[in-house]
């Protein structure tokens, strides 16, 4: 079935089987491997992307369901060669170690800050509560998001 999905602002048309999951469409068809693929059971959140501006777990969305819709992946966070503030926060505050959870964490963080520019630590933890990190113990992820919030408030 022919579908057209706008990913990071660019329309992509492909012929896919209805059973193809959005995560595999992004990784295998478009070679956008920044979206990771982990538990495959909608629990870990490494596959989070924005669908029409809202974070969803792309291992549990069919690519055909995204036909005619807009997807943003981690590759779409930077603008004109400049990292998004959230990405800078992860750099500044050592928000990652292995990096497996990071794309999903950053996309959820971006969405959170767009809705609430000054989230508390508890609100940040709640927002990422469906996403697992095996490395950082979450402390530095929370710090990274706070760094981004403060940096955006200051600018």
């Amino acid at each position: 079935m022919m579908i057209t999905v706008t990913v990071n602002g660019q329309a992509h048309t492909r012929d896919v089987e209805p059973r193809m999951l959005l995560v595999h469409f992004l990784r295998d068809e478009l070679r956008l491997t920044g979206t990771h693929w982990g538990c495959d059971t909608s629990n870990c959140g490494v596959c989070v992307v924005h669908l029409d501006g809202t974070p969803v777990k792309s291992c549990s969305v069919l690519a055909v369901m995204a036909d005619g819709h807009e997807v943003t992946t981690v590759e779409g966070l930077e603008r004109d060669g400049e990292l998004d503030t959230v990405q800078k926060g992860f750099v500044e505050c050592h928000g990652l170690q292995c990096g497996f959870c990071t794309p999903g964490m950053m996309l959820t963080a971006r969405w959170l800050l767009d809705r609430d520019p000054d989230p508390s630590e508890a609100e940040i933890r709640e927002a990422i509560s469906g996403q697992l990190c095996r490395c950082t113990g979450y402390e530095n992820i929370v710090r990274s998001v706070r760094w981004a919030a403060e940096s955006e408030a200051a600018s």
């Binding site: 959140g45 974070p55 969803v56 777990k57 709640e126």
Partner: peptide, 9 residues
């Protein structure tokens, strides 16, 4: 119920 990302969908 579930987590915020699942609740979005």
């Amino acid at each position: 119920i579930a987590d915020p990302v699942v609740r979005n969908r």
